[in-house]
């Protein structure tokens, strides 16, 4: 793991099937909108030895016609929305109902897309942490807000363990004052 600068981490990991799935999906997504991966997959990307059924992704608000182009390209490239129809997808996304996309005829893993609406999510979406991998680049949330969100807002045993893992694996690389700041912000 190489910290190229404050906003870029280079990972020389051997990619697994989940990494390849996420890279493939995000290559399509980034052509249409800004995105940022959050939560469980971020922890797995940095080595936590656990699985996940879904990958949480925030995207920027889009116009309907732009969203439809994204939807069509995803369909063309072998993905399908597994929890709603193309007709209803845009409205549901804007009503804060996440859309789940998986490879056709499969259910897991899937990508869960939500609109970034909270000020902090919008802020990080504009300037995400970039992770350089051997087969491409992923844009993820910075580590400090990830830890704060898991500890304050989620708080399940799995989330507490994820936050603990991030604290340990990034020891000396993360700003603990920032974590406390984000914890206060998420508590409001």
């Amino acid at each position: 793991m190489e910290f190229v600068n404050e906003g870029i981490i280079k990972l020389d990991k051997e990619l697994n099937e989940l990494d390849k799935f996420v890279l493939d999906f995000c290559r399509i997504l980034e052509k249409h909108t800004k995105y940022m991966i959050v939560s469980g997959y971020v922890i797995i990307l940095f080595g936590r030895s656990r699985g996940t059924e879904d990958v949480d992704v925030f995207i920027k608000e889009m116009k309907k016609q732009d969203f439809n182009k994204l939807f069509e390209e995803l369909e063309d490239k072998g993905y399908e929305c597994i929890n709603t129809s193309k007709r209803d997808a845009f409205e549901e996304l804007n009503e804060d109902i996440p859309l789940r996309f998986a490879k056709k005829n499969q259910f897991v893993p899937n990508i869960e897309i939500k609109l970034a609406k909270r000020p902090l999510d919008i802020h990080f979406l504009e300037k995400p942490l970039r992770v350089i991998l051997s087969e491409g680049e992923l844009r993820i949330s910075f580590i400090e807000p990830q830890i704060a969100f898991k500890e304050v807002c989620l708080g399940s045993k799995k989330d507490i363990e994820d936050a603990y893992y991030l604290r340990k694996v990034f020891e000396g690389k993360i700003n603990k004052e920032k974590i406390d700041y984000y914890k206060r912000e998420f508590s409001k």
Partner: peptide, 10 residues
Amino acid sequence: FIEMWAEYVR
């Protein structure tokens, strides 16, 4: 265990 694995990754 999580701590040990994180140390291994580091």
